[in-house]
């Protein structure tokens, strides 16, 4: 008994101690369970942000599972499931495409109509092209979102 405990102890000593933090750069990818920031003035979005429980992404509607700018996501917000469009990312972007300090989301319903009436942060102009393309292929009209934007960068 005594010898076995000794063995265990020596084994513990020789075991390398792994570092419990990431050494590689963060990629800020939007994937399942990423926290997002609602930037429109919809009631549910405002409440969720105000009580400090921002929505979580629970599905990304594309083939990679990683949300890019203009992608549709399903979020869990205040115990409900809502759909939204990503309108600004923290991730590094291509040249001339703005990179934001937060991952911004605008909530929409199934037809692509935004739940709010105004977006209170700037949104990238590239969304004009992306959302137009998606509208044709997916049936829902996402370009309504562009109409409630306050500013483009």
């Amino acid at each position: 008994m005594f010898s076995s405990s000794l063995l265990i102890r020596s084994a513990l000593k020789t075991k390398t101690i792994s570092r419990n933090f990431h050494v590689s750069n963060q990629r800020y990818e939007i994937q399942k369970l990423t926290r997002l920031r609602v930037v429109d003035n919809s009631e549910i979005g405002k409440q969720a942000m105000a009580e400090g429980r921002p929505p979580r992404c629970i599905h990304v509607y594309n083939k990679t599972g990683v949300g890019k700018i203009g992608d549709k996501v399903l979020v869990a917000i205040r115990g409900e499931k809502k759909k939204g469009i990503l309108v600004g990312l923290k991730q590094n972007q291509k040249t001339k495409v703005p990179k934001f300090d937060s991952n911004n989301l605008v909530l929409i319903d199934d037809n692509g109509t935004p739940l709010g009436t105004r977006i209170h942060v700037p949104i990238p102009t590239i969304l004009r092209t992306i959302l137009k393309e998606k509208t044709f292929s997916k049936g829902a009209d996402y370009t309504k979102l562009l109409g409630i934007a306050s500013k483009f960068v």
Binding site: T95, S102, H120
Partner: peptide, 24 residues
């Protein structure tokens, strides 16, 4: 050659990366 510009517009930090010799 590239450079990055940063500004805060409507309380939202925004950065844009530009290429110096981009003809656009």
């Amino acid at each position: 050659a590239q450079f990055t510009l940063r500004n805060i517009i409507d309380h939202q930090g925004i950065e844009i990366l530009y290429e110096m010799y981009d003809p656009a």
